[in-house]
């Protein structure tokens, strides 16, 4: 799967969790403008199914922005 497709799908999943339209790749995933740590686990569950990969919560340590998450998925898929 190419990078562009991964970004599109990650943003779609994130929109379902965050329920907002103004999200982009530079957005910080967690925190005030992002999602809670519990929602992050739920997001991972959806992404694992979508991309057929296993993302350990430990991998999330590298993730600050949505773009970092896309990098991680690209690396794993």
């Amino acid at each position: 799967m190419d990078r562009e497709m991964i970004e599109k799908l990650v943003l779609e999943h994130l929109k379902n969790v965050i329920d907002r339209d103004d999200i982009d790749l530079e957005m910080e995933l967690l925190g005030e403008d992002g999602i809670s740590s519990i929602e992050a686990m739920d997001l991972l569950s959806g992404l694992e199914k979508e991309f057929n990969i296993r993302i350990s919560p430990r991998n999330l340590r590298r993730v600050v922005t949505v773009e970092d998450l896309c990098d991680l998925i690209l690396e794993m898929s």
Binding site: E28, L30, G31, E32, S37, P57, L60, R61, R62, V64
Partner: peptide, 16 residues
């Protein structure tokens, strides 16, 4: 703080 966050577990990160 961004450097600290990269090393910290999720609940221990400073978000604001």
């Amino acid at each position: 703080i961004a450097r600290y966050n990269k090393e910290a577990a999720l609940p221990w990160r400073i978000q604001k």
